[in-house]
Amino acid sequence: MSTLETIPNSKKEVLVEILLRLADDRLILGHRLSEWAGHAPELEEDLALANIALDMIGHASALYGYAAQLEDKPDEDHYAYFRDDIDFKNIALTELPRGDFAFTTARLFLFSTFSYLLYNNITQVIEEEQFNGIIKKHFNEIKYHLRHSREWVLRLGDGTDLSKLKIQQAIDDLWMYTGEMFETDKTENLAAGYNLFIDVPVLKNEWMKWVTETLEEATLKTPDNNQYMFTGSRQGRHTEHLGRLLAEMQFLRRSYPDADWK
């Protein structure tokens, strides 16, 4: 058990914790996607990746904003710019370096499938009106992320020999980071008790089914689940990549914290 882990002890604290987990995933993956701007394989895809990055960073911003309101913090930037890597709760899958287009596609597909199932399920249990409203609104955009990334998995998988090799490699490399999607801990159990979240492990079977179906259609193999799975990110135990990402993202704001940057 991590020495850092503090168990929230009120409904509000639980809610904030859940908001930050959702937001961190989206900010960090959005950051990685935004790195494509100006470098995508084709002009149309440059626009598509930027759109998805905008959605994700926008989702994070809204969730942070709500948390700030609950905690009486100045604004959403407090969470994005003034926390350290051990405070971030995103799963490691989202922080891995950008990689090539196959890696980006595979990650986006695996994450969006999870995101789709999660949002679809939590809107049905969340009683908190504002929270539910945010999730419902973002869900529509997630549907598109899933559609876009799924179509690309099919094209790369059933495209050329080279593209098949690359996308299979990406899926294989990413697989050990998918376990964290379905981990749960005391915080999430508490959240489920307050009707703020669901018991995430129940999503795993459906996620496996969806992913396997698409991979099969793409003539790709689904990796073996009985392998080492990375763990700990939800408690702030990250890979080395997150620190560098944050160093870049936060440096200007932290160098001049008293300046107005909005």
């Binding site: 626009l47 759109n51 940057w261």
Partner: peptide, 23 residues
């Protein structure tokens, strides 16, 4: 400067703008 923009709002603005240039 997208990855280093000093606030989330400015980051979104800049990314949207760079995307517009692609458009």
């Amino acid at each position: 400067w997208i990855t280093r923009a000093p606030s989330l709002e400015r980051k979104l603005v800049l990314l949207a703008k760079v995307q517009d240039e692609a458009g």
